[in-house]
Amino acid sequence: MKRLWKIFKQGLVFENPLLMLMIGLCSALAVTTSVSNAVGMGLAMSFVLLFSEIIISAFRKVIPNSLRMPIFIIIIAAFTTIIDLVMQAYFPELSKSMGVFIPLIVVNCIIMGRVEAFAYKQKVMDAIADSLGMGLGYTWVMVGIAAIREVLGNGTFAGIQVMPDTYQPILFFTMSPGGFLVFALFISFNIWLKGKMQKAAKAKERA
């Protein structure tokens, strides 16, 4: 149990896919202009990651090494198509605003990376813990970046006006340079947080 918790925790800060591993960034920057998009993308990613890791970890003994890439793609593409169709059917508005980024989950480096580096070598339970940690680590960063960009760049939070009417939205934040700036601030924050946590862990060991 403790081991699973440790794997889960890795994805949140120490090995955060966006802030430390720095993979899967393009779609992250593109959809974080609104909080509802970020939540949708985070959940869609977590869903695909969770099920791909489970399936690949469960069948890792029968997937030949030389064939692993095409098989990974088949599995990931299948789950991505499932989530795409489900969103079109039950959340048409969200699906429209995310545009091409849902189908592009297939080639998202986070999923390919975790499947290759983790799920293909580890037990199913560990893979579940890893995918949940990575998924949550991805989602919190997405929502955090989106919150700042949407409030400053559009004056709204999840579509609800939060700034006074006189507030002139800073368009810079909805465009990619603003995205990079906020993203960089999150990286610095995460490095600071990591340092703090490591110190705290060392202090605990000594005590």
Binding site: K96, S97, R149, T174
Partner: peptide
């Protein structure tokens, strides 16, 4: 009805 565009701008 359909418009795929940059959120916050063309969208």
């Amino acid at each position: 009805l359909e418009n795929k565009d940059t959120p916050g701008l063309g969208a």
